[in-house]
């Protein structure tokens, strides 16, 4: 029988109250959003916070997907299910639907949240790569106000983010522009499993050229974005050669490990192929004006 270790339970009914509790209870307190990462970690004793602050009551306030000021804005408590069902996301950033279709299973998606996934920062987690690939910025709120950080600054490495002790993520913002397209490609051993390797890509097309590319790999020990690969595409016309070059650079800068999901060599191969596929599909969508 797996049960979480003991903790003191608090329930926050407002963002302000959650922040006050975090400040008062100190570094051994954690926010509980959908619970589908934190509770399994606690059952395995990989996490043992002394206090849990349940923010389930914030699900309505922080559960939304909307377009505002040229950006997509996604509330931190938006559940995977809502991300998958969102017509707006499907139209403007199809990468989310690509990824959500293959994140866990429909029942898990009814509870898990985007904020929880990003803050967990699991190295094989899909939404961190999705958000990095589309150049998302993350809104972090503290008692003294909020700051907005880009994904490379937010995601510091496995299980580590820029969120400070008395802070919480409230929103994710994705810049929109004409000629934007995005896609996600993932290989898993069985439906609903973590990725063997996955790649997210976005492109902004301008006059037939790739004005800006975003590339992010998951589960292969890559940086949160593949900056060298992105730079290699800027200003080029989309072509199989350009995509292959970007994929080669992305793979060069990742460091997968041998494990039960495959050998490092196999994962590199898959990551490269998925990068090419994601770029192809993102470009096709951009030319159809996803954005």
């Amino acid at each position: 029988m797996q049960v979480p270790p003991q903790f003191e339970y608090e329930r926050a009914t407002s963002i302000e109250q959650a922040l006050e509790l975090l400040a008062r209870l100190g570094p051994e307190a954690r926010l509980l959003a959908g619970g589908h990462s934190l509770l399994p970690m606690m059952k395995l004793r990989l996490a043992a916070p002394e206090h849990l602050i349940d923010i389930d009551p914030l699900a309505d306030e922080l559960g939304y997907v909307r377009e505002q000021d040229g950006e997509l804005r996604i509330g931190a408590m938006t559940r995977h299910r809502e991300l998958l069902d969102s017509e707006l996301l499907r139209r403007r950033a199809a990468i989310f639907a690509d990824a959500e279709r293959v994140i866990a299973d429909p029942v898990v998606r009814n509870r898990g949240t985007i904020g929880g996934a990003l803050c967990q920062a699991d190295p094989a987690e899909d939404l961190s790569a999705v958000c990095a690939a589309v150049g998302a910025r993350v809104v972090i709120r503290g008692r003294d106000g909020e700051r907005v950080v880009v994904m490379p600054e937010f995601h510091r490495g496995p299980y580590e983010t820029a969120v400070g002790e008395a802070e919480m993520v409230t929103e994710v913002r994705i810049p929109l522009s004409p000629g934007f397209g995005s896609a996600y490609e993932k290989v898993e051993r069985r439906v609903g499993d973590w990725a063997v390797a996955a790649a997210g890509a976005s492109v902004r097309m301008d006059d037939g050229e790739i004005a800006r590319a975003g590339i992010a790999l998951a589960a292969v020990g890559a940086g949160v974005t593949s900056a060298e690969a992105e730079a290699a595409l800027a200003g080029r016309r989309p072509s199989e050669e350009a995509f292959a070059e970007a994929a080669r650079l992305a793979v060069e800068h990742c460091s997968p490990v041998d494990d039960q999901r495959g050998s490092a060599e196999y994962k590199r191969h898959v990551a490269g192929e998925l990068t090419r596929r994601a770029l192809r599909r993102a470009t096709a969508r951009a030319l159809r004006e996803e954005g």
């Binding site: 339970y9 329930r11 509770l39 509870r111």
Partner: peptide, 18 residues
């Protein structure tokens, strides 16, 4: 939970309040 399927091994009873 409010009409949607959830895995009750991964939800705290306390979170089910309301």
């Amino acid at each position: 939970m409010d009409g949607r399927p959830v895995k009750s091994c991964t939800v705290l009873a306390a979170s089910a309040a309301g």
